[in-house]
Write a protein that binds this DNA or RNA. Sequence first.
DNA 1: CATCTAATTAGATATTAATCAAATTGGATG
DNA 2: CATCCAATTTGATTAATATCTAATTAGATG
Lengths: 191, 191
Amino acid sequence: MQLNRIVEFHKALGDLTRIRIIALLQQGPLHGQAIAGKLSLKPPTITHHMTKLREVGLIKERRDKNTIYFSLNQDVLESCANAILTLGKEAKNMEMSVTEAERAAILSNFYTADGTLKNIPAQRKKRLVVLSHIVKGLAFGKVYTEKEISEYLRKFHPDYATLRRELIIHQFMYRKNSQYEMNPPELWSFQ
Amino acid sequence: MQLNRIVEFHKALGDLTRIRIIALLQQGPLHGQAIAGKLSLKPPTITHHMTKLREVGLIKERRDKNTIYFSLNQDVLESCANAILTLGKEAKNMEMSVTEAERAAILSNFYTADGTLKNIPAQRKKRLVVLSHIVKGLAFGKVYTEKEISEYLRKFHPDYATLRRELIIHQFMYRKNSQYEMNPPELWSFQ
DNA sequence: CATCTAATTAGATATTAATCAAATTGGATG
DNA sequence: CATCCAATTTGATTAATATCTAATTAGATG
């Protein structure tokens, strides 16, 4: 994830009023005046804060007559909250380029003859080599459902949930609203 | 986790320079001048930012002669990053120990038509039901003075001091320096 | 068309905060 | 003791931002 996106996300949450709004919206959708009432603030102030939250993708809205119901985009909240945990690790990978020979050796080591994985490599470098190979089997630009992704991954290893999580964490794939998309290689934490 | 702690955490990360510092420290410990050099900033600026990061518990330090090596407290980073995800989520679990019917029965039993309490329930379970209902009339995240709290509680029962004490004891509210704040529902001692 | 209501924009004010130069602190060392 | 060096504090400047009132927009309804 881009550095500035992370900053803007945390800046959006670095305000008591906006945290209170998040807490409210986690209980369910609310319209502007209701939020203003519960927080003892004026509507323009709520608009101001909703704008900030919307700018970082945290807000979904649904209109009903004159009233706009705001709700939380939990996917964005989760992915942005976790982004900070894997920050410096991407930079470290830059130093860790792998030769083609090394790469081939790692792959032949972890793949069986029928194309499944013996196990998921514990060592970070090897895991990234294997993950990048797996993600190359997907079509770039295509949007996959969660079910499609799981089925694809299960062909490699029964623990497809771990594979899926690792693919997200290391920026090989991008998830939004339970839909999955391959990231462009320049975002991969690797190569 | 206390609401203000979450705000301070995100405020600490809502700055590009501090995010860059985090990214650096995730690769290993560094001393101040090294950070200043890598970011092309002056030492006082680094001190300023390290102070902010330290205030939210993100920094560990080790001294070697005149040089202080800063490193990241990953545990704090993870727990604070995840705190935002579970803010209001357990709000509904609270009622799990009591059925809605039971709850409604207790409330209608102790409330008069004009919204005041006939008396403060002696039985623990009933008292908790009533207290949780009272605290829901407060704004989550707002800081109240003792006077405001007392006035609010007096609308329910003349013995507002008992109500106030009970709200603290059972973790519905948090008090510090005569200032009161509603606790997040996951802290409520409901059954 | 006239009116209502919720949301937004505009503009003003007060507060917070990021950065640096200059001065200071405080341990380490000769 | 004198000196060095990294870190910190102080004080100033500049930029951002949280909140409000008043005015405006825009959809819905009679």
